[in-house]
């Protein structure tokens, strides 16, 4: 078993899996999202009634999940670009992955109140 040189089964493989899964999720969301936005061509009521779904507490948590997926995919995508185009990219791929995870965690913490605040107010009153 070679030590430390194998990509498979290590961080590199899991970041690739996560990149793939998040990319697919965002693509499916975008398909639905263009359909819901198209309702502006039907009537203001049709659009507003559908967008009301986006404002319910359960969907707020799904939006937080969407933000999580988009943020990871975006940050890790920049890491992939760095690995491919920066001459030291491959050497620092692991450090860059933990940087991605760190920045992702900070941004997710920052997004929690703006994205979920209204859901908590609705669920627990005030």
């Amino acid at each position: 078993m070679p030590a430390g040189t194998l990509y498979r089964g290590r961080e590199g493989m899991w970041s690739w899996v996560a990149h793939r899964v998040t990319g697919v999720l965002v693509f499916f969301f975008l398909f639905v999202h263009v359909l819901d936005t198209a309702l502006v061509r039907v009537s203001p009521e049709a659009y507003d009634d559908t967008i009301a779904v986006y404002k319910t507490p359960i969907v707020a948590f799904m939006e937080y999940g969407l933000v999580a997926a988009v943020l990871f995919h975006a940050l890790n995508g920049l890491r992939v670009v760095a690995v491919d185009f920066w001459n030291k990219g491959a050497r620092y791929q692991r450090q860059m992955l933990w940087t991605v995870v760190g920045v992702w965690a900070v941004l997710m913490a920052g997004a929690a109140y703006p994205v979920l605040g209204h859901a908590f107010r609705e669920l627990f009153g005030s």
Binding site: Y47, K55, A111, H118
Partner: peptide, 16 residues
């Protein structure tokens, strides 16, 4: 869409 100006609550036909 989700953070500025009251987040998703402000989205409506008029906003678009």
């Amino acid at each position: 869409q989700l953070v500025l100006d009251g987040g998703v609550s402000k989205v409506s036909f008029a906003f678009v």
